[in-house]
Amino acid sequence: MTNFSKGAILLLLLILSAQSLEARLQSCKPSGTIRGKKPPPGQCNQENDSDCCKDGKLYTTYKCSPPVTGTTKAVLTLNSFEEGGDGGGPSECDNNYHSDNTPVVALSTGWYSGGSRCLNNITVSANGRSVTAMVVDECDSTMGCDEDHDYQPPCPNNIVDASKAVWKALGVPEDDWGELDITWSDAKSCKPSGKIKGKKPPKDQCNRENDSDCCEEGKYYDIYKCSPKVTAHTKAVLTINSFEKGGDGGGPSECDGKYHSDHIPIVALSTGWFNKMHRCFKNITIYGNGKSVNAMVVDECDSTKGCDADHDYQPPCDNNIVDGSKAVWEALGVPQKDRGLMDIHWTDA
């Protein structure tokens, strides 16, 4: 055997060893097994050809899932998130049921990550198409074969369990729904588009009503041309604004060039959500403090500019703001002393 051949074999062995090590590092090993129990009569919903546990069969459990990358390999399965569907109880993220006509998914335990992906979007790709879907539930890889899990086996550790809307968006014929090899990734976030440098406002030129911020000399503020994707549960921060003449909202509203009474439920939206006036005079539904209110969009909370006379010498708006009138806060039952900033979610009405 020549030195060249020996060297080639040695190189091949090193490559195979490195690949094997990488595979071991990226693998997710079982955490145990559970023994199946025969479901009581009528207690396992087999909609969408769901499996039911078999008496005495050992099922593998996992506490982990493969690493998430830009193209995470997974198996797409079909699930009903509606009341009475094979998904069992309400979704883990919000304790609600969801229409199968909206793109929603449950993720295997490792990817669900203790709820850290709850109500966030992922991008699912297959069949030459892609769809954005919201995470609303866990496909439990650690437990199963009991009443809480509809007497179905534990979920494998590589599952994206999706509503009918996801399968439709991917263009899969209904006869082929069930299991499909896919890739997925966390949906792209909205990143800053630049910065502006703050200028000290001229005397009495920044209205501090409702504890509004004024620009600080030399401070850099992020600006955004985009906002997070709008879903049925769009996360946002509710702020308070006066839309009346002389209020901290500055000039008249962008949608109609008019001022509006603070006693009606109206809002300004961050630039991305304002969408070049496409939401003008449309209603959104805001959820917070255990209540909800419908409010009309009349203005933009500018995320691209600020710190000038046109913007009342206030900083650019963050990209996730619903700036509400006093009437919005009152409808949500928030005491006046607590008004200012509140985590909410909203959707187009």
Rank of each mutant, 00 (worst) to 15 (best):
E22T: 12
P30K: 02
S50V: 09
S50W: 03
S27R: 15
N45T: 00
P41D: 04
G36H: 01
Q26H: 14
R24G: 11
R24I: 11
K54I: 07
G56S: 06
T60Q: 05
C44G: 04
P30M: 08
Y59P: 00
A23P: 02
C28A: 14
K38E: 14
Q46T: 13
D55C: 04
D55A: 06
G42C: 00
P41E: 09
C52H: 05
K54Y: 09
Q26Y: 12
E22H: 15
K57W: 10
Q26R: 14
S50K: 06
P39R: 01
C52P: 00
T33S: 11
E47A: 14
T33Y: 11
K29P: 07
K37C: 06
G32Y: 09
N45L: 01
C53I: 03
K54F: 07
N48G: 04
R24Y: 15
I34A: 07
P40G: 02
K38A: 14
Q46K: 09
P30H: 13
G56L: 08
K54R: 14
G42D: 03
K29A: 15
G42I: 04
K29M: 15
D51L: 13
P30S: 12
Q43H: 09
C28T: 12
G36I: 03
K38F: 10
D49K: 14
N45Q: 03
C52T: 03
D49M: 12
L21F: 13
D51V: 02
L58V: 03
C53V: 04
G56I: 03
K57G: 00
E22C: 15
P39W: 00
K57V: 06
T33L: 08
L58I: 01
D55Y: 07
T33K: 13
N48E: 06
P41T: 02
N48F: 07
K37S: 11
C52S: 07
Q46I: 08
S50T: 11
S31G: 08
